[in-house]
Computed example of a mutant assay.
Amino acid sequence: MIQRIQSVFLLLVTALLTANIFIPVGSFLDSNGALYPFSPLNVNLPSAGLNYTPWGQLSLLVLAALVSFATIFLFKNRKLQIRMGIFNMLIMAGYYIVFLLFMLLTKGRTQASFQISFGLCLPLIAMILNFLAIRAIRKDEDKVRAADRIR
């Protein structure tokens, strides 16, 4: 049953979240006019002495990608598949909360401003695709229940 439309949606969610790990989600612009990219793999802001990996964001992206990929193979248990999809939506919402906290704390430590990049939109697109997958799974569940009532 991997050829179902929800499986395609979930596979796209996995691809978007995996790509978001490597794509910069924004850039810090320090007072000298230098632009420093910020991705979930690395933050490098020499003026503030920051050069590390934001593990909270990285772990949430990896977890969400793994959950969406594992959800594809739960097609025999549609109720669990729906629950995993909802859990994945919560993880992606948590990613945005952690990102916002990290950005505000970093801006508080430095005089750098932050510019948002396209990479920040990828988890939002993944959330929309995940919602569409949940909706398609619910339609399948309704069809199965309707067929069981006819028997």
Rank of each mutant, 00 (worst) to 15 (best):
I91E: 00
I91S: 01
M92L: 12
M92D: 06
M92H: 09
M92S: 01
A93Q: 00
A93G: 01
Y95N: 01
Y96V: 02
Y96C: 05
Y96K: 03
Y96A: 06
I97K: 02
I97C: 08
I97F: 08
V98K: 00
F99R: 08
F99E: 09
F99T: 13
F99N: 08
L100H: 09
L100T: 15
L100Y: 09
L101V: 15
L101R: 12
L101F: 08
L101G: 10
F102Y: 10
F102D: 14
F102Q: 11
F102S: 08
M103S: 09
M103E: 14
M103L: 13
L104Q: 11
L104N: 12
L105D: 14
L105I: 06
T106Y: 06
T106D: 03
T106R: 08
K107R: 14
K107M: 14
K107L: 07
G108I: 02
G108D: 10
G108Q: 09
G108R: 11
G108T: 05
R109D: 09
R109A: 10
R109E: 12
T110Y: 00
T110C: 06
T110R: 01
T110V: 06
Q111W: 02
Q111E: 11
Q111F: 09
Q111Y: 05
Q111L: 04
Q111D: 13
S113P: 03
S113Q: 12
S113A: 13
S113T: 15
S113L: 13
F114V: 06
F114T: 05
F114Q: 01
F114L: 11
Q115G: 04
Q115M: 10
I116Y: 05
I116P: 03
I116T: 15
S117W: 11
S117R: 12
S117F: 07
F118Q: 05
F118I: 15
F118G: 02
F118C: 08
F118T: 12
G119E: 13
G119M: 09
G119H: 03
L120W: 08
L120S: 11
L120M: 10
L120R: 10
L120D: 08
C121R: 00
C121A: 15
L122R: 05
L122C: 09
